[in-house]
């Protein structure tokens, strides 16, 4: 920069503002490149939009004309939602199940993992490093590998079936909690070990024990990281099908929305008035969570993506 006038931008500073992507972007901003972007955007939204519109159309219209005809002859109804929630498909029951499954299956592993991560990061005990590496390594176990033995273990302990404590929910809560632990411990440990050691040391010199340090210093500092993992785990549990099918056994008492929808797709695959409304009943909660907490979710995304 040679000029003293702050308003006159030198050529260099203008050029430096251009980054690799913007240059590439410019090079690709021929008309057809914009077309590509628009086509991708359309392909990614039209399927969802189509089903959403369909879910508000009368049953006879859905089967006799495409949803795009709505723009020439608009006709809407809420009957489909009334049907799926209160009719024989009884999605409201499964909606409740989804909530009852998800809350403990997020809260419990997050708590256990936060405590374990603290111990691995800041407490001294024999075998600490070995244990941590072992927990970390167990991330590679796909949940499929654990399912049959875990299920027979639950049967032996009497945790399955409607007569079991908690009406059979404990198998699902426990399974989700267990499967979440290795990743949660690893992630939270990464965050915790970044906190300066002097902070912990000075607290200890002042006479604070580990429990005080954990609850008064660590938890507030860890809140964003815990939120990031919590949202990730929430979406994972809410959207899960495999764990619900295997450990819920298809019972209407404990099965979540995903299990019911998958079943409907098989048995009533052509009843689009049910399937479209049903799909959006199951989508609305994760979409709200996602849209309102996107910031945290994106942060946890990369780290969390190898789970299960």
């Amino acid at each position: 920069m040679t000029t003293a006038d702050p308003n006159a931008m030198s050529v260099e500073s203008v050029v430096a503002k251009e980054t690799a992507s913007s240059t590439a972007h410019k090079a690709l901003t021929s008309p057809w490149a914009s077309i590509v972007a628009v086509v991708i955007a359309i392909l990614w939204t039209v399927p969802t939009a189509g089903l959403l519109i369909t879910s508000f159309r009368p049953e006879e219209d859905i089967t006799s004309s495409g949803w795009w005809t709505i723009f020439t002859s608009p006709k809407f109804t809420l009957d489909n939602y009334d049907q799926v929630l209160n009719g024989p498909t009884a999605l409201s029951t499964y909606f409740v199940n989804s909530i009852v499954i998800t809350l403990p299956a997020v809260i419990i592993p997050v708590c256990i993992a936060t405590m374990a991560a603290y111990a691995f990061a800041w407490m001294k005990f024999p075998g600490r490093d070995f244990l941590f590496v072992a927990v970390f390594a167990l991330q590679i176990v796909p949940i499929q590998v654990t399912m049959i033995p875990l299920l027979s273990l639950y049967v032996k302990l009497g945790l399955t079936g409607a007569e079991a404590p908690g009406g059979g929910f404990y198998t699902i809560w426990l399974s989700h909690s267990i499967f979440a632990l290795p990743l949660a411990i690893y992630l939270l440990h990464n965050f915790m070990s970044q906190i300066p050691g002097e902070l912990i040391e000075s607290a200890r010199v002042d006479g604070a024990g580990h429990v005080q340090i954990f609850s008064r210093i660590m938890l507030p500092l860890m809140a964003p990281a815990i939120a990031a993992f919590g949202i990730f785990q929430f979406l994972w549990v809410w959207n899960d099908l495999l764990v619900a099918l295997v450990f819920g056994g298809g019972s209407p008492d404990v099965s979540p929305l995903t299990a019911r929808l998958a079943e409907l797709s098989g048995t009533r695959g052509q009843d689009w008035f049910l399937l479209s409304a049903g799909a959006f009943v199951s989508l609305v909660v994760p979409l709200i969570v996602f849209l309102s907490l996107q910031r945290y979710f994106v942060r946890g995304l990369l780290a969390g993506s190898v789970k299960g």
């Binding site: 959207n239 799909a279 989508l283 979409l287």
Partner: peptide, 12 residues
Amino acid sequence: LPMAISLVGASI
């Protein structure tokens, strides 16, 4: 957005 949707929902 599809990332927030379950695979079951996406399939339907």
